[in-house]
Every structure is written in structure tokens, then in C-alpha cells.
Write a protein that binds this DNA or RNA. Structure first.
Lengths: 254, 254
DNA sequence: ACCTGAACACCGTTCAAGT
DNA sequence: ACCTGAACACCGTTCAAGT
């Protein structure tokens, strides 16, 4: 309704709104990183004064939260419970969605960490938790393990995706045309220069770090966690020798 | 040598040094959080001017990095390769060391995320990687899996420990005397108020979230990952049905 | 109801000057 | 070599004033 008149106002002014502000914030974060999001830059981009922004948004923290939530929401499409394909494929789809979102918006990794660490009950945590948890449920994991399994996967996915984005950003920063492999070689070389007495393991692993493909590594980690879930909840298997699964761990602090 | 004269200078002035500055920064972070660490507060605490601090430290980022590294170094004592006890106990000891460090210094969770996302080749990442990796090696994991297994555990441990610290901090902030269980009840209640159509899984899990013991949950997650490692590398087991472990995953983006 | 923009308090950092 | 402290540029936020 009233669609005829909308055309003219689009060009210059287009009336400020919370959505437009958040949209501009995301663009600014993508272009200049978290340090580049200032009210000065934002007012310039939106052609207004700071007061106008504060009318729609309480403060900078809320703006960052809204930008984070908007990007995450777009990345993990909650959708109807039953998508096509196997649960494993569903899990990969959700994980890759987050992986690519963080790859496209490198500031997201840090912001997610900050936000999950500040208010786990905000809108972002449930979004990610739900997206991963549904796949866990579809895998046939018993309900008693749902929380643990989903938590492990969530933390791994976010951490590893953030690490990947960091590698990508560092490679870009080192020199415009630097190859990703070349950059990983630099890191690997740095690790090989560590003290042999203090860092024997890290040095030994430096080679693998050089050659690995990030996406493949990411998926291998997910497979590892899924294997653990299966091993723990399938009564048929001999039960892993490494760990007493059912017995309560008990406190072993000092 | 020259031990006799050291007494007098300790009280008031005690000569500024990088170590003293980092020490004061950690104290300030512990007392007031990341927002409380300012050069103003720091100069007051150290009874100097900002110029004196800048003589020992390049900028605030370097100071935060140094504070983070100091706390992590104290938490994961690298020590001689072979400690007492089983590899599983060793793994728990390392994980609990980080868990407690983040619990004692809540700002550490966010700062580790920032720092690992910015410079994975800095001193902090190898410290944590080495501490966890040695236990992986001691568990008999084949070398080809070292990198994946250590990465998964590192991301999980840091993420889950940060989450725990966040819960603790939020419980404290909600009201001085609020019980941890009471706070988790609040979060659980918030999750149960989510839209049933969009968040069926999260709502179903809200109960578990209310009742769980954080430390127990943390250790259960580690057991899960260890079970996955065992399942993947032990040729004896029937191989988990959920995932094709050996076959290269291949790109499945869209 | 929504926006303007000058003003304020505070921050990280610099630097000429001291010892 | 090490420290002082005034000064600078920039930041998030406020608020009286407009429409």
C-alpha cells in the first residue's frame, strides 16, 4: 500500500532508522575493522549528527551487539527443523555458515567472544546454539548429552573459524599480494624457532601447520567431535579406554 | 650479592620497570575489568606520569598483551615433559589450570580471543598449544592427528572456560549475594521464554542448563573430545558410523 | 516524534624539558 | 638512561534547541 510515493525519498535522506544505522555499522566494520567504527564516521556516512543516532540506539555497545546479531542471524538460517540431507551434512552446513560469516566479517570473531562472555542470554547465543543443537538432535544423540555435545561443537566452531579469519587477515596485512600458504609458512617458521626445550610439541607440529588446508582442518575437527559423540552414546562400542564416561568426574582441583 | 641495601628503596619509589607496570596492569584489570585499565589510573597507582610508562611499554595494546601473557604463563606451567599421573590426569590438570586462570581473571577470556585472533604467532598461542599438545602426545595419538586434536581441545577449553567466567561474573553483577544456581535459573527461564517454533532445541535443553555444574560440564566436554580422538585413531574400533574419517572431506560449499 | 550540532568529560599518546 | 607533566587529537555521549 502507498507504494507509489516511496521512490523519491530514497535518494538523499531516506529517513534514519535503526535498521539503516545497523546496516551502515556493518559496512563500516567490514571496511575498516572494529577500530574504524566511530560515531564520527557513522554520522558522516549517514549524513546526520550524533544525536540522531542516539535517538535510535542507546549507545555504541548496543550498536555493536545489533550488528553482530544481524550478521549471525543471516548466517545461521534457522529455518524449518527438517532440511534436506543427512544430519552430518546439516551439521557441516551450519558450521560452514558460521565459518564463512566470520571469514567475510573478521570483526565477528572477536565480537562474538566478547558478547558470549558478557551476556550468554542475549539473542546471539541461542541462535548459534539452536542451529548446532538441531543437528545434534538429528544425529540421534540421547537427550542427556545434548548440552555437552552442543557446547563442545559451538566453542570449537567459533574458535576455529576465528582462527581461520585471523590467518586470512594476517596474510592480507603482511603484504597485499601474499599467498595464504606463504603466510602459514611464516608462522610455521616462527614456531620452529621456539626453544626446543620448552616447546618440543609445538615445533614438531609446525610442519603440519604449514601444509594444512584451513577448511579441511576445520571439517576434520568437526568429524573428531562427532566421533566422540558417537563413541560416548553408542552402547555397542567397547567404550573408549581413555576415559571413564559415566562415572561422575568429581573435583580434582589440587 | 648486595642484598643489604635493597630494603629501603622498596617502599615508595622502587624504580619503575616493565615488570612492575605489567603487574600493576594485571591488578587493575582484576579489580576493575578491561574498561578500568587506563593510563590515568595506571599513573596514579604507580605514582608517575604517562611518559614514564611509555618509556617501558610501546602502547596500550602491548601492555594488554604482556598482561595476558604473564597470567597465561603462570597458569600453564610448561615444566619438564613428564609429570606424574596418567595422560588423562595431565590433560585435566592443564585444562583446569586455564579454567581457573580465566575464572580468577575474567578479562582474560576476551583478551585471549582478541589476541589469538590478531597474532597467532605471538607468545601466548604456543604456550597454550604446547601445554595441551603434550598431553595429546602422551595419550598415544598418532602424529598425523596431533594438530587437529590439539586445536579442537584448545578452542573448546578456552571457549568453555570463558563461558563459565561469564556466568560467574553475571551472577555477581546481578546482585552481590546472588547464588550461582539462582542466576542459571534466570538464564534458563529466559531461554524457556524463546519462541517455541524458532527455538525448540534450546528450550528443550534449558532444563539441563539450569541444573548443571559448570566444572563437571567442562570436564565432560573434555572427555567427549578425548573419546573422539580415541575412536578416530584406534584401528580396533568399528569406526564411528556417523562420519567418513579417512576419506578427504572435499569442498562442499554450496 | 525525530533531528541538529556545539559542548563536555575522558581517553591514548606525544614531546620538550628536566635529572 | 630514565622520568615529568602539560598539551594534543580523538573519542563516546549529552542536551538545549529546533522542526
Amino acid at each position: 500500500m502507498a507504494a507509489a510515493r516511496t521512490r523519491r525519498s530514497q535518494r538523499r535522506t531516506e529517513a534514519l532508522s535503526r535498521e539503516r544505522i545497523v546496516e551502515a555499522a556493518v559496512e563500516l566494520l567490514d571496511a575498516t575493522g572494529e577500530g574504524g567504527l566511530t560515531f564520527r564516521a557513522l554520522t558522516e556516512r549517514l549524513a546526520t549528527g550524533p544525536g540522531a543516532i542516539y535517538w535510535h540506539v542507546a549507545n555504541k555497545g548496543e550498536l555493536l551487539d545489533a550488528a553482530t546479531d544481524a550478521v549471525v542471524a543471516a548466517a545461521v538460517t534457522v529455518g524449518p527443523a527438517g532440511s534436506a540431507g543427512s544430519p552430518q551434512q546439516g551439521m557441516r552446513a551450519v558450521a560452514l555458515g558460521l565459518y564463512e560469516a566470520i571469514d567475510d566479517h573478521p570483526w565477528l570473531a572477536t565480537r562474538l567472544a566478547v558478547q558470549l562472555a558478557r551476556s550468554p542470554w542475549g539473542p546471539v547465543a541461542p541462535r548459534i546454539f539452536e542451529g548446532i543443537g538441531r543437528q545434534i538432535r538429528a544425529l540421534g544423540v540421547p537427550e542427556s548429552h545434548w548440552f555437552t555435545a552442543t557446547s563442545v561443537l559451538m566453542h570449537y566452531v567459533l574458535g576455529a573459524a576465528g582462527q581461520n579469519a585471523a590467518n586470512a587477515a594476517s596474510a592480507r596485512a603482511l603484504a597485499p599480494g601474499v599467498d595464504r600458504a606463504e603466510f602459514l609458512g611464516t608462522v610455521s617458521a616462527a614456531w620452529e624457532r621456539l626453544d626446543p626445550d620448552d616447546y618440543p610439541f609445538t615445533r614438531a607440529v609446525a610442519d603440519q601447520a604449514r601444509e594444512h588446508d584451513d577448511l579441511e582442518e576445520f571439517l576434520a575437527g568437526i568429524d573428531l567431535v562427532l566421533a566422540g559423540i558417537t563413541a560416548l552414546h553408542l552402547p555397542g562400542t567397547t567404550g573408549p579406554a581413555t576415559t571413564q564416561t559415566a562415572a561422575p568426574p568429581g573435583r580434582i582441583r589440587d
